[in-house]
């Protein structure tokens, strides 16, 4: 087995441990709840492209102006980094802090 190669390359998922680390209870993954104000969205897709955890995808629905707002793929993926809140030009996304998640 090549030790230098990480076992799990997909950083969006928690790592696979061969045993449970002793201090695993001490550390938590931050978690945020994503809120989208659909009527403000102009469909630029910045959030979909630049979210590091790929929380969003294009929705099939329309808002009243005829744009496709983003929809949330999985609430569990959000780690409360608030990049979408900063990058959304329309003031249409915000994050509220949620209960942190366990690593395993």
């Amino acid at each position: 087995m090549n030790l230098s190669e990480p076992k799990n390359k997909d950083i969006s998922k928690p790592p696979d441990y061969w045993r449970k680390p002793l201090d695993v209870e001490k550390y938590k993954i931050p978690h945020g709840a994503v809120h989208i104000i659909i009527e403000r969205c102009k469909g630029c897709e910045f959030c979909i492209e630049f979210c590091p955890q790929k929380v969003f995808e294009v929705s099939d629905e329309f808002n009243s102006k005829g744009y496709h707002p983003p929809k949330i793929v999985s609430h569990d993926k959000c780690v409360n980094c608030k990049l979408c809140e900063l990058i959304c030009p329309e003031f249409a996304i915000y994050i509220t802090e949620d209960e942190p998640m366990n690593i395993i």
């Binding site: 102009k42 630029c44 959304c88």
Partner: peptide, 18 residues
């Protein structure tokens, strides 16, 4: 006054929020 006049894909909204 939202939504603002800037086009879809314009960076001004992002600069403004920064």
């Amino acid at each position: 006054r939202m939504p603002h006049i800037w086009c879809s894909g314009c960076g001004l909204g992002t600069n403004f929020i920064c």
